[in-house]
């Protein structure tokens, strides 16, 4: 769906859906915050569209997180596993 040509083996994963729900934001609210249409947020969450650098920074600003916390070249591990898995290792 994303119109820009990219290497097939280099997808961009994101945590938008998890972060949005965690912050209690609807798609429309997030869309309004970054000045896009709600359908674009849906397309980003599904991985149908890769954001421009500008939009990626705007999204990260809403969540107050660095880019690498929201977007990655590799699939994200679930947040719960990341948080509680590390706690388990520490014990």
């Amino acid at each position: 769906m994303s119109p820009v040509r990219r290497g097939k083996d280099l997808p961009i994963y994101n945590r938008l859906q998890v972060l949005r729900v965690e912050r209690g934001l609807t798609r429309a609210a997030l869309a309004e915050a970054v000045e896009v249409n709600p359908q674009t947020i849906g397309a980003l969450e599904r991985g149908d569209h890769y954001p421009s650098l500008d939009l990626a920074f705007r999204l990260c600003e809403v969540f107050g997180l660095p880019v690498e916390a929201v977007f990655s070249r590799h699939p994200f591990t679930p947040l719960s596993t990341q948080v509680y898995g590390q706690q388990g290792e520490g014990k």
Binding site: P3, Q39, T40, P51, D54
Partner: peptide, 11 residues
């Protein structure tokens, strides 16, 4: 249009 819609429109 936002960036996704513009990209689609141009395509």
């Amino acid at each position: 249009a936002d960036e996704r819609e513009l990209a689609l429109r141009n395509r």
